[in-house]
Amino acid sequence: MKAMLFDFDGTLADTLPLSFNAFKSVFKQYDNREVTNEELVAMFGPTEEGIIYTNFANKPFVPDAIQGYYSYYEKEHHTECQCDQGIIDLLLFLKEHGVKIGVVTGKSRRSFDISAAALQLDSYFDVSITGADVVQPKPHPEGIHKALHTLGIDSENAIFVGDSNADILAGKAAGLRTYAVQWLSTCQSLTYNVEPDGLFTNVMHFRELLEKEVVIHGH
């Protein structure tokens, strides 16, 4: 294992509740409608701008709503979102063993940068591919291929970890060993169209699996 690629929202960062609240706020304010978490998850795939643009009935308000989304997301980040210590420890463990760490997220570059900075995660990542960097979002494997290409690492030497059905489909389509996680307060999917290579509800258990591998392969 030379690289580990992660999804971001719901996998490395408990940002989904914040994202849901930011969307609800702008749908109510600028499109005069209430949306549920389930409705929002069904809209996921494109970046935040794409979600607002595609799903707003009130198109003239789209630019204001996008700005409103980012304002809310940035302003409330510190109150609504903390980093999980187990995840920090996992990233440190990977770094110590020379494993490259990448993020493949459907988020826009702008919201990813806000979160990575607010949670002080940016120093861990060797590459980050956002929704703005691909033509085809997950479940298409384009982002994963792009991250591996940037790192110069083959798919058989990498693992992908994510919380959504689209993540598992993308990881499998890219030919990576792919693990599903449900270890934060909110995740996007509880069931998957294809079987992941494992499902973890606890960061420590995942790390134990990796520790065995690292020992076996003598890194």
Rank of each mutant, 00 (worst) to 15 (best):
D7P: 10
T15W: 03
S25G: 00
Y30C: 01
D31L: 00
R33K: 08
R33P: 00
V35M: 03
E39S: 10
P46F: 14
E48K: 02
I51A: 02
T54G: 03
N55M: 01
N58E: 03
N58C: 03
F61K: 08
F61P: 00
P63Q: 04
I66S: 00
Y72F: 15
H78N: 12
C81H: 07
G86W: 04
I88R: 05
D89V: 06
L90E: 05
L91A: 05
L92F: 15
L94G: 07
L94A: 09
E96N: 07
K100I: 11
I101K: 10
G102T: 15
T105H: 00
G106Q: 02
K107N: 11
S111F: 01
F112T: 02
I114R: 02
A118G: 13
L121H: 01
D122W: 00
D122H: 01
G131Y: 02
D133Y: 04
V134D: 02
Q136W: 14
P137G: 09
G143Q: 07
H145Y: 12
A147D: 12
A147E: 08
H149T: 06
T150N: 13
A158R: 12
I159W: 10
S164Q: 14
A166Y: 15
D167M: 13
D167W: 09
I168Q: 13
Q182A: 14
T186I: 10
C187T: 14
Q188E: 08
Y192H: 12
Y192M: 14
V194T: 11
T201C: 15
T201L: 11
N202R: 07
N202D: 11
V203K: 09
R207Q: 08
L209K: 14
E211H: 10
K212Q: 11
V215K: 15
V215Q: 12
G218H: 11
G218Y: 05
